[in-house]
Structure formats: structure tokens, C-alpha cells
């Protein structure tokens, strides 16, 4: 019966239609009608239920890094089509459309920035680019961000939002999990501080690799997290999923998150953590 049910908040395709231009915005979670100017001031967090709307990479950079500045690296990396993949459309067309729609080259931006004066290697994923999926480009840019943190002995901060590995690049996408995770093994041995921030949604291949491998894992409230998607689980077990299953709060309770932090407190919290974690060796 699940196709009759409304999708979980946050993976709702309605969201995009609700966000722009309009004077009023409806909360995807509680349905509250909010004055758009007001919710913009609140960093796109519902004042009634604390639901965190999607937030653009540019806005996160502005929010988290000193002077809103990121020195971007590896900007020119772009996806190829090694499998000549085609479903209802060609992968190459899908890429072009995603690039035109988002203005981004692929699903991650990475570079160097500062948090309260200290340099960090920072990477941020963009869900609106083919579901934030990880293909060769995402895997390579994350890998280089890890290497930058090792080479410069600076903290690594990755903000994730992703549906998982990118199917259109097949087994190559799966191997990005191995590539990024094995570099994190080195970073870990070199005592590089790593903070992973999970935003709505972060699942599958990304959750089962670098997003889960940080010293400190922070999630925004009410994000959908997990390994398997809720629809797959529902089809497997053939029954309704419990309320709040796979939310940030659920994983917090189960012991897989260090903290749930509201958007407005993210920068402050990260800065506080880095104060303790910066490599003292």
C-alpha cells in the first residue's frame, strides 16, 4: 500500500516547488504556513516543529566558514560516462540537466576555509544534483579533501546529503566508498580531526562510508538517515515502519550520533569541538 502514502518529509519532491519566491512557505513536516522572509531569517528552519528545510551549499558555506569564504579546489572535475549508461534517459543527458538546473558541475564542492581563524579542509554535498549521489567525481573530490587535511595537518569537515552511490557509474561508484574510507584510515592514524555533519537525507553508500567514519558525527534535527531506504525496508518486511524510524533522533537514541545540532548552532558547535580536537602532536 505504500505508494498511497505520502513520502517522508525531506525526500518530498514538493519541497522544491514550495521554497522559491512565494511570500508564504508551507512546512513539509507540520504544514505550518510561514512568512518566507521570516523563515529565511531562521535559516530555513520551521519555527513550529524545528524541521530543517534544504539549504544550499552557498548558504552553508556562508553560515559555517569565516567570512563565508571557501577557497574552492578541483572545480573542473566533471563526470564521464564510462558505462554508456542509459535508462529512461542517457546518463550524459541527466548530467547536463542537473548541471543546468543546479549551476553546479557535480554533487560536491570542496576546498579550504577557516573556522574561527583555524584552517579546515571542507567539503559539502548537494542533494539537488542527482540526489547528491556519489560517482567518480564525488569520490575523487572527497578523497582529495581528505588528502588536503592530511598534507596540511588540518581538520576535515564534510557535510553530507546524499541518496548513496550513483547507479549510473555502476561498480566504479561502489569503489568510491573503498577509496574514501581507505584514505580516512590514514587520516585516522595521523590523528586528523574529522567532523561529519549529516543533513537530510544521508543514506546508503555515503552513510556506509565516509559519513559514518568521523570522530564526531553531528546530524541536523529530523534528517532521514540510514543504510537502506525506507521504501526498500518496507518492501522487505511488508509492514509499516514505526513513526520516526531512521530519523536523526532515532539514530541518536541508538548510539550512532554524537549530537543533534540545530542549523543556527552548527558553526559554534564545530568551533568548540575543534578547540579540543586540533592536532596537538
Amino acid at each position: 500500500m505504500e505508494w498511497f502514502r505520502k513520502a517522508k518529509p525531506g525526500i518530498d519532491s514538493q519541497e522544491k516547488r514550495n521554497i522559491p519566491e512565494g511570500l508564504w512557505t508551507k512546512c513539509n513536516s507540520c504544514g505550518e504556513i510561514i512568512y518566507t522572509k521570516k523563515i529565511e531569517e531562521l535559516l530555513w528552519v520551521c519555527p513550529k516543529c524545528d524541521y530543517h528545510f534544504k539549504y544550499s551549499s552557498a548558504k552553508y558555506i556562508d553560515l559555517l566558514l569565516d567570512d563565508g569564504k571557501l577557497e574552492e579546489f578541483d572545480k573542473s572535475l566533471s563526470s564521464k560516462d564510462p558505462l554508456k549508461f542509459r535508462d529512461s534517459k542517457k546518463y550524459t543527458d541527466r548530467l547536463k540537466q542537473a548541471q543546468q538546473k543546479s549551476g553546479a558541475v557535480d554533487a560536491v564542492i570542496a576546498g579550504l576555509g577557516k573556522i574561527e581563524g583555524g584552517e579546515v579542509s571542507f567539503a559539502i554535498m548537494n542533494f539537488s544534483f542527482i540526489g547528491g549521489s556519489m560517482g567518480s567525481v564525488v569520490g575523487e573530490k572527497i578523497s582529495r579533501a581528505i588528502e588536503r587535511s592530511i598534507d596540511r595537518n588540518i581538520p576535515l569537515i564534510i557535510l553530507s546529503s546524499s541518496g548513496g552511490a550513483r547507479m549510473q557509474e555502476g561498480i566504479l561508484s561502489l569503489m568510491q566508498m573503498a577509496k574514501t574510507s581507505s584514505l580516512l584510515a590514514i587520516a585516522n592514524k595521523k590523528k586528523i580531526p574529522y567532523i561529519s555533519i549529516l543533513t537530510n537525507p544521508t543514506t546508503a553508500g555515503v552513510m556506509a562510508s565516509y559519513a559514518s567514519l568521523a570522530d564526531v558525527i553531528i546530524a541536523e534535527p529530523k534528517a532521514l538517515l540510514g543504510f537502506a531506504g525506507p521504501r526498500v525496508i518496507q518492501q522487505t518486511i511488508g509492514q509499516e515502519l514505526p513513526e520516526g524510524f531512521q530519523s536523526s533522533e532515532f539514530f541518536m537514541k541508538k548510539g550512532f550520533l554524537d549530537m543533534i545540532v540545530s542549523r543556527k548552532n552548527l558553526r559554534h558547535t564545530i568551533a568548540g569541538l575543534l578547540g579540543h580536537m586540533r592536532n596537538k602532536n
Binding site: 573503498a178 574510507s181 584510515a185 556506509a208 565516509y210 567514519l213 540510514g226 543504510f227 537502506a228 522487505t236
Partner: peptide, 26 residues
């Protein structure tokens, strides 16, 4: 595939897989 079920999520399927991949590398 890794089992996609409620208990598997509760006990951290993603974390378990991620950790193995990282640890196997070294």
C-alpha cells in the same frame, strides 16, 4: 545485499559496513 530491515538499521548497518571498509584498508 546487506539485510535491509528494522533491526539492521537499529544496530547500525551503515556504521558497521563503513568501519569494516576503513579497517580492512590497513
Amino acid at each position: 545485499g546487506a539485510y535491509p530491515g528494522i533491526e539492521a538499521e537499529e544496530r547500525g548497518q551503515a556504521e558497521a559496513i563503513a568501519r569494516n571498509i576503513r579497517e580492512m584498508a590497513v
